[in-house]
Design a protein around this nucleic acid. Structure first.
Lengths: 203, 203, 203, 203
DNA sequence: AATGAATGAGAATTCATTCAT
DNA sequence: CATGAATGAATTCTCATTCAT
């Protein structure tokens, strides 16, 4: 019975420590001290310091990817402007929820992925490219359907993703008292206008 | 007279190494090997690894801040829509130039500043907050003049800065063949529309 | 359970090495090589090279101070000359024993305390001053009781302590075949005569 | 003409620095900085850091040895007690003068010689043994002439030298306001009594 | 499963000394 | 003689990982 609790304790401690001091600056000894187990115990559950980091991120990434794929698929669906807006809103809201529910891990992944640390760049950039592809696909469809207008869909997609990710992390991590629903609403509004959305559209 | 060339060689090597492997993973021995000098020589010019990083960033930061302050001041100035657009464009273009001219250092600062390394977060976040303030000030003025409409100026400013910084680095570092002038043009367009800019404005 | 033996091995090796080459010239690598453990093992037991030195000295200092305080208190006690002589002798003998039992450490402390190393001067000089105070106190009492005569009790005390410490270390460390009992006897004799002891004293 | 002043400046700076921080802790860069010359200049005058130390000590040692040999030769000479006392006093006084005139160097030699530093032990101990021999020779002569009584002349000589050296340094370096003439007088008195000097002696 | 002592490769930094100018 | 940049060996200390108990 020791297993699940010990492993969980290690994971929780690792998240806490990684967030506080970053991956590189966190020592395995910090993690085990925080978890209250012996140094060697760590290696009964994880092959290395890297492995626990990846294990921590994987759940979040899986969840996020799954939802992202599932949601973006219908991003600009709808027969009327209101339906489209509502769908865009749903994407924003659902993805925001996942960030909210995994805020610590999201920050971790974001920071280590962008930082030059090395190994985690791949994980992060893999995610980034996937999301970019998915968004671009939808943007193209929407352009084709005459819903929005944008000179270059790749550039437009980078705008969307950059704006989304950066804002989310800023308001969730730094300016924490922000009204997230307002943020979502404004984001949808800003992005649709930026994309020259045809507010009078109807099939 | 060996001084300036040795010091410069070290700085250039340091930038290269930091970019390749990150600050933490770069060894002083990597830097000196790349610069072709002895280990001890490094310490004739820099007190520590941290110090060379700071010295590298400082020039760029100074330049960027100066230009940013100077340019944003007139961001939404103008008596006609065209004049305003032209001013917004100039801000985007000038700041983009600085990024282009200091691409390596810009990436360095961005990555290490966001990564959890520690000391560089301060430098980066200091810059980030300053820019946010400057942008928000201008956004407020523009709202008051009826040029644009935005529910919350702070949120709007984060949108602007996030979109700008993220896109710039993406297209300069990853998708390098991008037509930067097109990017600038689209950015101005996207942002103004996102801010509900009154294209028919005139004093 | 490797702990006590490893730590002890390190301490013994450290004493040996410090004695052979001094604190400054002794490398941690010398100590671990002599103890037959890995370099890192040292730092499982001691925070630094300085720390092991302090730990080595502390036992000896504690013991010496305790005995010194306890013994000197009755240094010149007694109702007859013979009793007094016997008490002085006991002080000399007891303190000599402690030096004999901790010869290596005593030498270490003496050498590093006098040498300009820095940190150990404090330890040594603290001890030196304490002993000087204790001796002077007794010398004053003895002068007041008419047992001895000395123009300046501070100077006399420095004579006593200098003579004692220097001789002890000389004969224990350099001219090792010396008959210590004879040395003690001669020391008591020399010192009492030097202090103009009243050999016919009686209450 | 630059030579003598540059070399002297280096020597004076070296003495100052060695005294402040000890030989080991003093860097050549400290010495040249204090002397106001370039790093390389040091090596125009001295082969190494050790060499400047030796050069500093040599004058003092030569002087001290010369005077010590010259003076001790007649240490217990004299046909009356008063003459002997006066001769002993002269030895003490003359040697004290040399210490006084070279206090900084004396402390240096003493500290580094006793400290476990290594190379200077030899210099110091050579001196120590020479002085001990010289003293013992005189003590033996005095015993043979019935001037003094001492069970073991070697032990007695160590008493004399230990007391002398230790006291001198204590009162010259630490308790600096001491009346040196009184110290000399008391030393002569203490020592002669300790040696059971025959105050009524006469040829 | 848990422990924690032992490991040792590797990192930053110092500083006496050299030498071309 | 004076300079001071360059050198690189040497040293302390860190920490992920192993493994016998």
């Amino acid at each position: 019975m020791g297993e699940p609790s010990t492993k969980n304790a290690l994971i929780e401690s690792a998240i806490r420590m990684f967030q506080q001091n970053g991956f590189q600056m966190t020592r395995v000894s910090d993690i085990v001290a925080d978890a209250g187990v012996a140094q060697g115990t760590f290696y009964n559950y994880f092959k290395s310091k890297e492995e626990i980091f990846k294990e921590i991120c994987n759940d979040f990434i899986d969840q996020l990817q799954k939802k992202f794929i599932e949601r973006t698929e219908h991003m600009f669906d709808g027969d009327t402007a209101d339906e489209v807006i509502s769908n865009v809103h749903r994407v924003v809201r659902d993805v925001t929820r996942i960030y909210q529910d995994n805020l610590n891990v999201a920050e971790l992944l974001f920071r280590e992925g962008i930082g030059n640390g090395g190994i985690f760049k791949e994980i992060y950039e893999g995610m980034f490219f996937l999301f970019l592809e998915l968004i671009e696909e939808q943007v193209e469809k929407a352009v084709n359907r005459g819903l929005i207008e944008i000179e270059d869909t790749r550039i437009g997609s980078v705008f969307l993703f950059g704006l989304f990710e950066r804002s989310l992390l800023y308001f969730m991590l730094i300016q924490k008292n922000t009204d997230i629903e307002k943020l979502e609403r404004m984001m949808v509004d800003f992005v649709l206008k930026g994309l020259s959305f045809n507010y009078h559209f109807s099939v």
